[in-house]
Design a protein around this nucleic acid. Structure first.
Length: 287
DNA sequence: AGTTGCCCCTGCGCGC
DNA sequence: TGCGCGCAGGGGCAAC
């Protein structure tokens, strides 16, 4: 469950259900799900047993569970990963990759991932953050996110503004859905070069990204299907509030022009061709 | 150095 | 029915 709101929903579930519990056993059922743990799945399992889980943390789309002061279990859900709390004895999911049981004999933690783009690993903490993700920027819901610094960096990018939004070393947590939604709210075309943005436009875009993700989080995130659920298997409700993403051929909520879909970075970009004009058109319109 | 593309996977819905 | 194609909430890394 990819983007910031969905990952934060999972983090909260972990905080509630796993904090303070001690690991009894670890089953790594698919090596690919542990591939980022360089010492291998057996080492991952052996080093986790007997450890007590701390309070789950998150930066962007990464989350981690501290094991004391200087080590943590790092997780990324990729495109299809789930962290589920399941009663012991519940039938295994088809794509169950890792099972973690606890010494209290309570419900177990499962990592389920159809496409295995996600995974778990043990990482050293460096200033409280897993060493392998220090390149990930803070996300816009982080109180220490620096708005002015991001706005300046965005306006220095030659690349298209959507590509910049998806660059997790610039701003983290934004994925394909919320990038399109933020651009729609800010009335900006996804391919406008960062260098073409005025200061107000760049600020507007950051505000839009922050607002749309906060609103999505408030209703449990965006779920189109059972793949995107919280640790208890429940869906969020933000899909009904989407204005651009996935709405090709449907009327724009502002101007009723039909939303357009174009291929972009091996994915899709949805936008209103009237409200979100490309650079040249905007410049002409303003002059 | 910054930017761009390709690829890692599995499953589903579509048109033929 | 079956098969091939395109598409899916991500990101690391090689190649310009």
């Amino acid at each position: 469950m990819p983007e910031l709101p969905e990952v934060e929903v999972v983090r909260r579930g972990l905080e509630r259900w796993t904090a303070g519990r001690t690991v009894a056993a670890v089953e790594a059922l698919h090596p690919r799900a542990i591939r980022r743990h360089v010492a291998g799945p057996d080492d991952f399992a052996a080093r986790l047993v007997g450890r007590t889980l701390g309070v789950a943390q998150r930066r962007g789309k990464y989350l981690w569970v501290p094991l004391g002061e200087d080590e943590a279990v790092l997780g990324h859900l990729g495109m299809s990963g789930q962290l589920l709390i399941q009663p012991i004895g519940a039938p295994d999911e088809k794509h169950l990759r890792v099972r973690i049981t606890f010494t209290d004999d309570g419900p177990e933690l499962r990592f389920v991932d159809q496409r295995t783009f996600g995974g778990l690993s043990l990482e050293a903490l460096k200033d409280g953050v897993p060493a392998t993700i220090v390149h990930i920027a803070r996300d816009p819901l982080d109180p220490e996110f620096q708005d002015a610094k991001f706005v300046a960096a965005l306006r220095a990018k030659n690349t298209g503004v959507k590509r910049a939004l998806l660059d997790q070393s610039l701003i983290s947590g934004v994925g394909n859905i919320y990038a399109d939604e933020a651009l729609w709210r800010a009335r900006l075309h996804f391919d406008r070069p960062g260098t073409s943005l005025t200061l107000p436009e760049a600020k507007r875009l950051l505000t839009a990204a922050r607002e749309v993700m906060a609103e999505a989080l408030a209703v449990g995130g965006t779920s189109f299907d059972a793949l995107y659920v919280n640790v208890n298997g429940e869906s969020g409700y933000f899909s009904r509030s989407l204005n651009a993403y996935g709405r090709a051929g449907q009327p724009c909520g502002r101007c009723a022009t039909l939303i357009t879909r174009v291929a972009f970075m091996n994915r899709s970009s949805y936008f209103c061709p009237r409200c979100q004009k490309a650079a040249g058109q905007n410049l002409v319109a303003r002059s």
